[in-house]
C-alpha cells in the first residue's frame, strides 16, 4: 500500500446534526450537568432585574413607596449612581458564572472520556471531537442560560411583588428588564462557549488508549 491519506474533516452541518441528535436524547442528564450554568445565570438575572425594578421605583419618588423601599433596606439616595459596591457585586457575579460554567464543561468531558476514545477508534479526527463538543456545550449553554433566566426572573419578580406590591406593576420598567434579560442571555451564551473551548481541546487531545482504559 502506498502513502496513507489524511482523514478528512466531517462538515460543520453534519457535525451539528449528529451533536444535536445526541444531545436531545440526554437532555435531562445534561441539564444536571448544566446546574452550574442555570444557577449562575439565575443569580445574574435576578441581580440585574431586581436592580432595574428598584431603580424604577426610586425614580417615582412617592412617599408611600419610599417607605416600602426603606423597609427593604434600599439606600434611596445612592441608587443608580453606579456605586463601587454594585460594580464589585456584578464582577463577583460574573466570576461565579464563569466558574460555574467551566466546571460544568469539564464535567461533561470527564463524563464522556470513554465515548471520545471509541469515536477515535472509529476514525474520528480531532477536529470532529472539538467541534462536536463546542456545538454541544454551546447548545447546553443556551438551554442552561434560558432555564437560569426563567428561574432568576421568577425569583426577582416574586421578591419584588412581596416587597413593593402593586407598585411593581404600576411602574414596571419593561425596557430595563428586557435589557437585563438580554444581557444575561448574551453573557450566559458567550461564557458557555468560551468556557467550553479548553475542555473541548482537552477532549480531542485524549489518547484513545488512555480514554478506553477509563472506567465509567
Amino acid at each position: 500500500m502506498g502513502e496513507i491519506p489524511v482523514q478528512k474533516d466531517v462538515p460543520w452541518l453534519v457535525t451539528f446534526k449528529i451533536s444535536w441528535g445526541s444531545l436531545r436524547r440526554r437532555l435531562l442528564r445534561s441539564l444536571v450537568t448544566m446546574t452550574g450554568v442555570v444557577l449562575a445565570i439565575a443569580f445574574l438575572a435576578h441581580m440585574l432585574i431586581t436592580d432595574s425594578i428598584i431603580y424604577a421605583l426610586v425614580e417615582v419618588n412617592e412617599r408611600a413607596l419610599n417607605i416600602l423601599l426603606q423597609k427593604s433596606d434600599v439606600d434611596i439616595s445612592n441608587v443608580g449612581t453606579g456605586d463601587s459596591l454594585m460594580v464589585l457585586f456584578l464582577f463577583l457575579t460574573l466570576l461565579i458564572t464563569l466558574v460555574g460554567i467551566s466546571n460544568s464543561m469539564f464535567m461533561a468531558v470527564t463524563e464522556r472520556v470513554r465515548e471520545i476514545g471509541t469515536l477515535k477508534c472509529l476514525g474520528a479526527h480531532d477536529n470532529f471531537i472539538i467541534r462536536s463538543f463546542l456545538i454541544e456545550s454551546s447548545l447546553q449553554g443556551v438551554l442552561g442560560t434560558l432555564c437560569g433566566i426563567i428561574l432568576g426572573m421568577t425569583v426577582a419578580l416574586s421578591v419584588a411583588l412581596v416587597s413593593y406590591q402593586a407598585y411593581v406593576f404600576k411602574y414596571f420598567p419593561l425596557a430595563a428588564v428586557i435589557k437585563a434579560l438580554m444581557i444575561s442571555f448574551v453573557i450566559g451564551t458567550v461564557l458557555s462557549v468560551v468556557a467550553s473551548i479548553i475542555p473541548a481541546y482537552m477532549a480531542a487531545r485524549k489518547q484513545p488508549v488512555e480514554a478506553l482504559r477509563h472506567e465509567e
Binding site: 491519506p5 489524511v6 482523514q7 471509541t118 472509529l122
Partner: peptide, 19 residues
C-alpha cells in the same frame, strides 16, 4: 490525521464491553 484515516478505513474495532 493519517492514523485516524487508517483506523477508519482499515481497522474495525470490537470491544469486550461493546462501547
Amino acid at each position: 490525521a493519517q492514523l485516524a484515516w487508517f483506523r477508519c478505513h482499515k481497522i474495525g474495532f470490537i470491544f469486550q464491553s461493546f462501547n
